[in-house]
Design a protein around this nucleic acid. Structure first.
Lengths: 191, 191
DNA sequence: CGAATCCTTCAAATACTTTTGAAGAGTATG
DNA sequence: CATACTCTTCAAAAGTATTTGAAGGATTCG
């Protein structure tokens, strides 16, 4: 009961490719995107072997990529009736996926930056009172500039939080806000 | 009149490093971030040589990185009184920088994806009317799924547009929207 | 014009990332 | 418990991206 090799339709191949590129753009491995996309477009769950054949990857690559996708919670293992292999499906709730990634990855990135900026400000605050005029000037300018960076980072953080809240409450306020300034009448709700 | 080698303060080094990492995270070269940050924190314009020494890079790297930064419009050449060398300053309008990058890069990325999804939908629309029941099922499911991807992409595009509009009107509506749901009383306006 | 200075380019070197596939661990089956 | 099958791991290979530095242009200065 092996060898359901499965050829992709051109549209499937194209979508997998685009999703792969998008994911790569967002800092993941291209194959993560491709595998996810194939699963996302699949009627039934797929086995690792199946994916290996469909996408022409090595067994190792499939195994590693799948476990990464599992860690990100964007793919799930499913138990299939009397099959020895593991089978996989894609998370189809796009918002849930995205918010998971954002809240783990971008959030920590920005948090780190914010902390670093705050520390730098604290150091500069001391130097701003230096005896040396040159030092004072330099410290003062840098203080102001870093404040800007910090403010921007905080804004980014808020935007992120707003997005995440949105994801949880199922795409309400932000979507409405955005659509409020558009001509489109669609009652947009992305799963 | 050469050799103002310029050592970075710890806070400067830290900030340059963090900005470098952030930029790397956003898909640029780390050195782009580091160079920009050094310029951003500098009281006066800096020469390429100066940057080369401060950051311990090769002349080639500095030249190439600067020209990339110039292309992105996040660094500018300035003419300095009776100096042979070129001098550089950072764009300090953070919003302007970001909106420039977003509108060139993320926008085209998302546009490409949207087009690909639309094409895939068109192809599947034909297959949905296939004689073969299996084919119909597969095409129908994929159609629905890709519609979701498309909807999400369009949402992303709108979000991007809203951000860009915001940047142009100088951080008004979006910032207000975001702050509207926060406790902070700050009258936030990032340059 | 010739020398000096500065900038750019690019092939080669280095550093980093991803993929491969064989070895081995784990597990169900007869 | 031996066999067959599947999944994981990991060192080596392949593939990418970045950096270097020497060569060559361009510009200014005397």
């Amino acid at each position: 009961m092996t060898k359901e090799a499965h050829t992709l339709w051109p549209s499937e191949a194209a979508v997998s490719d685009v999703v792969g590129r998008l994911m790569e753009f967002w800092g993941f491995k291209r194959n993560m995107g491709r595998i996810w996309a194939v699963l996302y477009l699949s009627v039934e769950p797929r086995s690792a072997e199946d994916l290996r054949e469909t996408l022409k990857l090595s067994s190792g690559a499939v195994s590693m990529t799948l476990s990464e996708l599992l860690r990100w919670g964007v793919v799930r293992k499913v138990w299939v009736q009397g099959e020895r292999k593991d089978f996989y499906t894609a998370e189809v709730q796009l918002w849930r996926m995205i918010s998971r990634v954002f809240s783990e990855r971008e959030r920590s990135e920005i948090k780190f930056a914010i902390e670093a900026f705050e520390e730098a400000l604290a150091e500069l605050d001391v130097l701003k009172r230096s005896d040396d005029a040159k030092t004072r000037e330099r410290a003062t300018l840098q203080y102001a500039r870093i404040e800007q960076l910090l403010e921007l980072s905080r804004l980014g953080q808020k935007l992120l939080d707003a997005l995440l809240a949105t994801a949880k409450l199922d795409a309400e306020p932000l979507v409405r806000f955005l659509l409020g300034r558009e001509k489109s009448p669609s009652s947009s709700h992305v799963s």
